[in-house]
C-alpha cells in the first residue's frame, strides 16, 4: 500500500497511457467492422470468406503479432501504433460477426415495412437496421472493450507503456504491490469502459429500456411477484 501511495503519479500516468492505447482500437474496430459485417450479411460468398477470415485473425497470438506488425507496416518496434493496430485487428475479428448477427437480428417485418413506406437501402441501413441492431452491437462492443483493455497490457512486453508496465516492472524489481496495483487498476479501467458503454446504450437506445418493463399481455399481478 505504501508503494501505491508513493507512486500515485506513476499509476495515473500509466492509466492515461492505457486509455490512449485502448480507445482508438475500440472505436476503429467498430468503424471497420461495420461495412465488413454488412458485407458478410449481404452476400453468401462474402459471408463465408469474411467470417472465416475474421475467426482466423483472432487465432493469431498477440505477442508474435506485436513483433511481426512493425516488419509488415514499417513502424518502429516500440511504437504504440503496433499495439493500436494489433488490437484493432482483434476487435475487428470479434465485431465483424457481431455486426453481421446484429443486422440479422432486425425483424424482417420491420425491414420490409421500412422499404415499403419508402426508405432507400442507404437510409434504411442508417435509420432502421443499424439502430435496431444496437443491443447486439452493444453487447459485442462491451466484450471488445474489456478484452482490449486487458490486451493492451501485453504491449508492455515490447516496451509500449501502459498499466501492463506495472506488471513487467513489478516482476523485474520484485514489487508485489506494483503488480497488484497494475492488475486492480486494469480491471477497474475495464469496468469503467464497460459502464460507459452501458450508459451510452441507455442514452442512445431509449426504446430498449422503456419497452422492456411494460410488455403488453403480461398481467400486472404476475409482474409484481
Amino acid at each position: 500500500m505504501t508503494w501505491v501511495l508513493a507512486n500515485l503519479g506513476l499509476i495515473w500516468a500509466r492509466t492515461l497511457d492505457h486509455v490512449v492505447l485502448s480507445l482508438p482500437p475500440i472505436v476503429l474496430c467498430f468503424l471497420i467492422a461495420l461495412p465488413l459485417g454488412w458485407l458478410a450479411r449481404r452476400y453468401r460468398i462474402s459471408r463465408g470468406i469474411i467470417l472465416t477470415g475474421a475467426g482466423l485473425l483472432y487465432a493469431v497470438p498477440s505477442l508474435p503479432l506485436f513483433f511481426v506488425l512493425p516488419a509488415v507496416i514499417g513502424t518502429g518496434l516500440r511504437s504504440p501504433l503496433n499495439v493500436i493496430i494489433a488490437l484493432t485487428l482483434y476487435g475487428v475479428a470479434l465485431m465483424v460477426r457481431v455486426v453481421s448477427d446484429g443486422l440479422d437480428s432486425v425483424d424482417a417485418d420491420v425491414r420490409q415495412s421500412a422499404s415499403a413506406v419508402g426508405y432507400s437501402a442507404w437510409s434504411r441501413f442508417w435509420q432502421v437496421e443499424l439502430p435496431l441492431s444496437g443491443p447486439v452491437l452493444l453487447a459485442g462492443l462491451r466484450v471488445v472493450a474489456v478484452s482490449t483493455v486487458s490486451l493492451v497490457t501485453v504491449g508492455a512486453v515490447i516496451g509500449v507503456q501502459s498499466l501492463g508496465s506495472l506488471f513487467t516492472d513489478g516482476f523485474q524489481r520484485g514489487i508485489q504491490a506494483e503488480i497488484i496495483a497494475g492488475l486492480v487498476v486494469t480491471v477497474g479501467l475495464a469496468l469503467v469502459f464497460d459502464g460507459g458503454l452501458v450508459l451510452a446504450g441507455r442514452v442512445l437506445m431509449p426504446w430498449n429500456r422503456r419497452a422492456a418493463p411494460s410488455k403488453p399481455n403480461v398481467p400486472v399481478e404476475l409482474r409484481a411477484t
Binding site: D107, V110, S113, A116, V117, G118, S120, P131, L132, W207
Partner: peptide, 20 residues
C-alpha cells in the same frame, strides 16, 4: 423509392419502427 413514398402502406403487425 419515390413511388413508395407517395403510397400509403399498412401491414399486419403494424410494421412500426420499434425504436421510434
Amino acid at each position: 423509392v419515390k413511388l413508395r413514398r407517395g403510397i400509403g402502406y399498412v401491414m399486419q403487425n403494424s410494421g412500426l419502427l420499434p425504436h421510434r
